[in-house]
Every structure is written in structure tokens, then in C-alpha cells.
Computed example of a mutant assay.
Amino acid sequence: MDKTYATTADAVADIGDGASVAVGGFGLCGIPSALIDALHAQGAASLQVVSNNCGTDDHGLGILLGASRIARVTGSYVGENKEFAHQYLTGELEVELVPQGTLAERLRAGGCGIPAFYTPAGVGTPLADGGIPWRHHADGTVAVASPAKETRIFGGREFVLEEGIVCDFALVRAARGDRHGNLVFDMSARNFNPLAAMAGRVAIAEVEELVEPGMLRPEDIHLPGVFVQRVVALTAQQAADKYIEKRTVTA
């Protein structure tokens, strides 16, 4: 039952080229930065990433993106990363944009073994009708466009069918975790982390504080260890490395 790994490098060693990876975090809040750094050092390329966004140019998934190690992104926001926009518009990166709530539910559904579900989000738009550019040619023309999705009427209202997401791996960050993989997230860092972990066949968690089994009260656990396969305790420096996208001050 002891799921701990000695280092982040050990934990991500078997993530290969072309692997699909769900990554927790929202902006730079709650991102598994140490695991991302280890994956960057490890060298895996052509990654298929599922994450709310792709970090910034200097932090988070933006590090992998800047090294041209990501081939495809499924996410809901791209506004903080100029390199993301550049690679998408020049055909280097395939991008599937998904409404944020739909993305969250697709991850949760995949983790729960639900293959698909109906939602009203996107009905009557190109999200349901198809035609959204996923990948461009180098000259800016569309190389791959989104397909039309199945719709159905329930109670007189139209809904669109969305598929659950399951990835080969998941990378998440938690404030506390035990050796069995039970995790506790701190405030808004809870965001996409539990859902990403659920969607990964192999979920890898970096924890700021590692505790022994039984030290976490069952009612305090946000994600049970059944969804987590690997746990890495961060060093004090790694735990302290947290970045802010935009600092706002008042006079």
C-alpha cells in the first residue's frame, strides 16, 4: 500500500512519447510544478495534454510547450501564454477548446467509468455543430476541424453529447497526502486537481506534506487513495515554489 516514490524523476520515468497526461491546476494555482519540471528533464515528447490551461510562458506547462514537447492540448483557456497562441496559429500545436464546466465533467466522468453524458453547454454553436479549427497548416488555413457532435432532446430541450476523458497519466499537487495516496488540497488549489487525478490511469501526486496513514481524518480527505497510484513528497524549497500570474496592488 505504500505508494511513495523517492523523487519526482522516479515518479515520471515511464511517461513515454505520445502519452496522454491530465494535469491539475488553474492558471498557476495548484499546478504540479515539480512533476512538470521532472517531466521536462525526462525528455518525453509529443504529449497529449488535458488541462484547464497551459500555464504561462515561463511556468507550469508553458515550460513543456516552449520546448515543443506538447503535440495536443484539450483545455478551456489560452489567454496567458503567447507561445501557446503562436504554436496553435502556425500549425505546431493541435488545440481542442472545451467549456470549462464541460471539461471538468468530462474528467470526472472518465474517472467514474462513464463513457459520455449530455449537457446543454454548446448547443447551437460550432462546439456542437463542428468546424472549430483544431489544427492549422503553416499558412494559417485549417488542417483539422472539430467534428459535429450528437444532440438529443430531453424534456423539450436540446443537449449535446460529450465524451468522458481518460488519460494514461495524471499529474497533480496536494497540500497533504499519506503513503496510501489519500490527498487533501488547500483552498482554491483544489480546482482541477481531484478531477485530473480521477481521469488518469496512473495518477502521480506531489504533496507539500507527507503524513503517515491514519493521520488524515476521513472527513478531511478530498480525494481517496483509490484514485492515486504514486506519491512524491516535495522538498521544502519545492513546496515553497509558487508563482502568481498577475500581481495586483492598490494605492
Rank of each mutant, 00 (worst) to 15 (best):
K3V: 04
Y5F: 15
A6Y: 15
T7R: 08
T8I: 02
T8Q: 08
D10F: 03
V12K: 00
A13P: 00
D14I: 03
G16H: 10
V21R: 00
F26C: 10
C29V: 15
I36D: 02
A38V: 05
A41R: 14
A45T: 15
V49D: 05
V50R: 00
S51Y: 04
N52E: 12
N52T: 12
T56P: 05
T56Y: 04
D57I: 07
G60W: 02
G60V: 05
G66M: 07
A67Q: 06
A67N: 06
A71I: 05
G75K: 06
V78W: 13
E83M: 12
Y88H: 11
Y88R: 09
E94V: 08
E96A: 12
L97N: 11
G101K: 12
L103I: 08
E105P: 03
R108S: 15
C112V: 13
F117R: 00
Y118K: 08
T119C: 07
A121F: 10
T125D: 07
L127N: 07
G130C: 03
G131V: 00
A148F: 11
R152Q: 13
V160L: 02
E163Y: 11
E163S: 15
V166M: 03
F169M: 02
V172K: 00
R176N: 09
D178R: 01
F185D: 02
D186N: 12
A189I: 00
R190P: 06
N191Q: 14
A199M: 07
R201P: 00
E206K: 03
V211C: 14
G214R: 10
R217I: 10
D220M: 12
I221N: 02
G225A: 09
V231A: 01
V232T: 03
T235I: 04
A240N: 09
K242I: 09
Y243G: 08
E245A: 15
E245D: 13
R247T: 12
V249P: 08
